[in-house]
Amino acid sequence: MIKRKHKGMPKKNVLVIGGGVAGLAAALELAEQEIGVDLIEKSEFLGGHAARFSCKASGECVKCGACIVVEKLKKSFLNPNIRIHTGCKIKKFENNGIIKTRVDKESSEISFESDAAIIASGFKPFNPVNKPFGYKRFNNVITNIDLEEMLKLEDDVVRPSDKRFPKSIAFIQCVGSRDESLNHLWCSHVCCGSALRVAKKIKSIKPETEITFFYIDVQTFGKDFQEFYDSMKQEIRMVRSIPGDILISDNDCPQITFFDSEKNCSIDEIFEMVVLSIGLTPGEDNKNLSELMDIKLDDSGFFKSGENSSTGIFTAGTSRGPMSIEDAILDGGRAALEAIKYIDRKDL
């Protein structure tokens, strides 16, 4: 057996684009390997969409992963190898073995030189205004992200119209997902988990709340899905049908018309609040980044899954397609290792 000497890693730098879960996970793994990271983020805050999500536990953790973001953020701020640049917009990107990036930050310009880059620019939540569900027209029709934010910031669930706890809530799944007419031929992976976990939390806050879940197929999430799903079927009404029109009834209550397959007829039912589970769609910068960095998008508009190991530009997280917080953490780690391997190969 030959023993190899452990070589000290020469100081290298990687550019990470996007400060969401995947970007933070990648940056932390790289930094642990003594690689310098320039983490650029276009908004003023790190954490991405996941930082807006609420804890969905009701005494018992339901493994949604929202709390992990806090931990990643804390570690990133403390790690001296990670240089965080928020409020940045990429102006120029050159890759001739060494990656040269120029970004605008406020009124000044910053340049970085990096040995590899990881795109972790995230997703865009689907905007449901053009769906027939009355979003932005009716006060009490909100999205699951609105609901998560409300739980996190207000520690409460209230109807936007009168700030009262809704007695009945309808969740409508697959809004903007599984939709060929929008060219969204994908399941967004996370919405069943988000909706059912929040539903469980709401039931634990106010058990008398009547919750109806309109769906096509319930997707598996979490390690104890079978048990979770069986218990949810007892607690809430599951309707395997996507509703049609939503109209507004008395007292700002949305009225939903849906086809009841069992009764074989349409039913008009009034709910106090409707939550649309909106899908994950390609990030709004994907096209721009794809052109700027010469990385191909797939026919859905997400970054291609295949690695660009020859150019040193890697993709991670929801920039590649819908995924959960857990999967984004894994994917960030994977991309970090790919980048490290690339740098090693280049050194040989």
Binding site: R178, I242, T257, F258, S266
Partner: peptide, 20 residues
């Protein structure tokens, strides 16, 4: 068809004589 049911929910005559 993925049997999502939105067509039958939208249909103004769903349920008449068991139609959808």
């Amino acid at each position: 068809c993925v049997t999502c049911g939105i067509c039958s929910s939208m249909c103004p005559v769903s349920g008449i004589d068991d139609f959808d």
